[in-house]
């Protein structure tokens, strides 16, 4: 800094004030602010005016500077000498602008300028935030403006629809999860277990012992047909005995198994449709044959869950 010696002569007695001021005392890197030097003159008074070339201090650069100007304020009796600098800083930190000495006894106050950096969030994804390059509305025709407005409306609608969809999806997912919690997986008893249980129950009923032979054989026949239908997947409940046996033959079921099933169903048919009678041993045998048929044809480790 160099000092320029200026001599002013004033007529009146010494009466003056001096000031150096910053527009802001805290700025971000690259921000531009005004640095103003004022000095109010008395009469016949000699001062030294500071001259800055490129920087105020190290780190505070001068962008632009005005001429030294003399102002007259109505409230003031004496003129004011003023010079303004546009300054900036590209390094963060705290800078001290030392007092400016206008004479040996006259000086300004020391100034502090704090320069901050811009905080960068690393977790933020990179994206283009630059505004859409749309020409000034004033340059557009009415039709273009309408189209522009319509586009804006459409965009808004799309955003609303997307938001609503997201809400709906979230609701459905919530409901699904809630339902999933309520409906516990149902384990179905394997078909052979069901059939064997039914046969066991039938045995407990002691139907043939009570003389209800037809009911006993009807039940056995139904249990076996139900099991066969589920086990071999054909409509055994709707087929007569001969057709059931033919179907099993087609499925290449072991001959002995088919023969034993034939004994059960034919005997049942004889009792059911021909008023047939059977001996005690035959009744027991049919039950045993039925149990064996199921055991021999069951699917091992069958577990079906719904």
């Amino acid at each position: 800094m160099k000092n320029l010696t200026l001599i002013f002569l004033f007529l009146s007695t010494i009466s003056f004030s001096q000031k150096a001021s910053l527009e802001k005392d805290t700025i971000l890197i690259g921000d531009q602010i005004k640095f103003t030097i004022n000095h109010v003159l008395g009469c016949d008074y000699q001062i030294e005016w500071p001259i800055y070339n490129n920087s105020i201090v190290d780190g505070i650069e001068i962008i632009k500077k005005s001429d030294i100007d003399t102002l007259y304020d109505h409230d003031q009796e004496f003129p004011i000498i003023q010079q303004q600098y546009i300054i900036t800083s590209f390094d963060s930190g705290t800078y001290t602008i030392p007092p400016i000495f206008f004479s040996e006894s006259v000086k300004s106050e020391e100034l502090i300028l704090v320069v901050n950096t811009i905080t960068v969030n690393d977790s933020t994804k990179m994206s283009d935030h630059s505004p859409l390059l749309i020409g000034e509305d004033e340059d557009l025709t009415t039709e273009e403006l309408d189209k522009l407005n319509e586009n804006k409306r459409n965009r808004t609608m799309i955003i609303i629809v997307i938001v609503l969809l997201l809400i709906a999806i979230a609701y459905l997912v919530y409901k699904y999860l809630q339902r999933k919690e309520i409906i516990k997986p149902k384990v179905i008893v394997p078909i052979h277990v069901t059939a064997l249980n039914k046969l066991q129950n039938l045995k407990k009923q002691k139907l043939w012992q009570k003389g209800e032979l037809k009911e006993y054989y009807s039940e056995i026949s139904t249990i076996i047909r139900e099991y066969t239908e589920l086990r071999f997947v054909f409509n055994a409940l709707e087929l007569p005995t001969s057709d059931i046996l033919s179907e099993l033959k087609k499925l290449k079921v072991e001959k002995k198994i088919i023969e034993s099933l034939g004994i059960i169903l034919k005997r049942a048919d004889n009792i059911k449709y021909a008023k047939g009678l059977s001996l005690e041993d035959e009744n027991k045998e049919v039950m045993e044959l039925s149990v064996n048929f199921i055991k021999k044809t069951k699917i091992e480790n069958e577990r079906i869950s719904k």
């Binding site: 007569p240 005995t241 449709y273 021909a274």
Partner: peptide, 10 residues
């Protein structure tokens, strides 16, 4: 046969 069975009906 002296009696009818479902096979006959079918």
């Amino acid at each position: 046969r002296g009696y009818v069975i479902p096979e006959d009906v079918r």
